[in-house]
Design a protein around this nucleic acid. Structure first.
Lengths: 252, 252
DNA sequence: AAGTCGCCTTGATCCAGATCAGTGTTTCAA
DNA sequence: TTGAAACACTGATCTGGATCAAGGCGACTT
């Protein structure tokens, strides 16, 4: 995980004054390719950095934003894990996703112009806040920024559609574990072993399963030597077999 | 439905020379608000019209694009209905959506840069083709175009997420019928009675149900006087009750 | 170190919807 | 007008995963 110096709740500090950790973070962030010095116009780049506010820390259970809040900004997770969810009028929760460091949150709020879901910290979380009006202005000036936004939005449609398919509990869980592994790996963390920061109930809800089913399937995967589970820590012992299980549900 | 003069397969003609029917279509299209003369810059507007190619007709079963094709353009349906689907390596189909006149197809292809799904005409279909590179260039110049693209993309994320929820067959079907009604109504068609252009099997697949279940639920809805079904024609007799059934699954 | 609270796991039972099997019905070609 | 094929409906049975019901197992308090 990124080590981030605590700076008090909701503190905002100038990113340009930030230290090496921040640069390391940016290199793995969803906006990294455009945030980091490339062939891009230097002034424009400075503008992108100017509009980023570093916010945090949030603690487990804190809301980054709430359903119904007016949409003003999208967020990149800097550290920790964020869960998005909606709660229907019967009070039932529906988990929409988990967001790792480097991933964006809030893209689904552009259309309704209000956040359509809650974003909740699962552990200690730091985020980058991108004012959306400022970002669109910048996007009109820097083609790479616009492209990246289109790509991020489009990718989310694809992800959501995959999850909507009808798949067995085994397929879903295998795909979930591999998906996490791949995302951790893309951000520079280990893809073989990682921590399930969220509760079993959250995993279950996200995958549209019962918590009991998640327990049982993890157990079964362990018995077949596909994984090793110990509490919230997982190790993928046989990614190839998992991939075979999940093949109908993985991107591609 | 829009009456469109047949012009031969894949014919392309200059939209600026188009007749009144096209204008009527544009007023109900997803891009209508930006395509049609508003307070917008006239030259820019002309550019948007310039980059639109009218393509068609496609006939039932024809592909508008195929999975794996290089992504170059997004499409607005002008007339008819388009189904998007993917086929996994085991040959099983997964229906991703149905697209009515005025709706966009292909937004989920931006990220992978290849179409991740097939788009197939369900009946006689005409589309507007928007070259994506041209569109992004234009979006950088006209804020309304950029905004509209962001909104369309964001809205699709929300739709896909709702479908991913776990819901009973009754909820799904009620929401499906109401959703269609609302979309037809938004495009200027009747919301009380319309035709299910797609086969029962497609509806079932889209809703992750068996075709038999769709039959049975429609039957049950009819017995409860919620709808009247006759072949592929439906009439919504009691939208209020349907809405109550579907409340956990409808936007909002 | 004992109690409490939040998970997590395991076993037993149940049920919504899938699957299987068979029968109409519509469409359309010749 | 007949035949064939695709589609739609209905009934009987089966099943994956939900639900119900108990424990177990840390991680904090006190």
């Amino acid at each position: 995980m990124n080590k981030v110096t605590a700076t008090g709740n909701l503190s905002i500090h100038n990113p340009i004054a930030d230290d090496g950790d921040d640069l390391h973070f940016c290199s793995t962030c969803a906006f990294g390719s455009v945030c980091l010095p490339a062939g891009v116009d230097k002034n424009a780049l400075r503008e992108l950095h100017m509009l980023v506010e570093h916010v945090g820390p949030f603690h487990a259970g804190d809301h980054v934003f709430r359903s119904g809040d007016r949409f003003e900004a999208i967020y990149a997770v800097r550290a920790g894990m964020v869960k998005t969810r909606l709660v229907d009028d019967a009070g039932r929760e529906q988990v929409l996703g988990f967001h790792l460091p480097g991933e964006m949150v809030g893209l689904n709020a552009i259309h309704p112009a209000k956040y359509p879901c809650d974003a909740i910290a699962l552990d200690t979380v730091y985020v980058c806040r991108f004012s959306f009006p400022a970002l669109t202005t910048l996007a009109a000036k820097i083609p790479d920024v616009q492209q990246q936004l289109f790509r991020l939005l489009s990718a989310d449609i694809g992800k959501a559609m995959l999850l909507a398919g009808d798949h067995t509990a085994d397929e879903r869980l295998a795909a979930f574990l591999l998906g996490l592994a791949e995302r951790y790996s893309a951000r520079g963390f280990s893809s073989a072993a990682f921590r399930l920061v969220m509760a079993r109930a959250d995993i279950a809800n996200y995958l549209r399963l019962a918590a009991e089913t998640v327990s049982r399937v993890l157990r079964r995967f362990q018995d077949k030597n596909l994984i090793r589970v110990e509490g919230r820590d997982v190790e993928l012992l046989d990614p190839a077999s998992l991939r075979r299980l999940a093949r109908n549900l993985l991107p591609g």
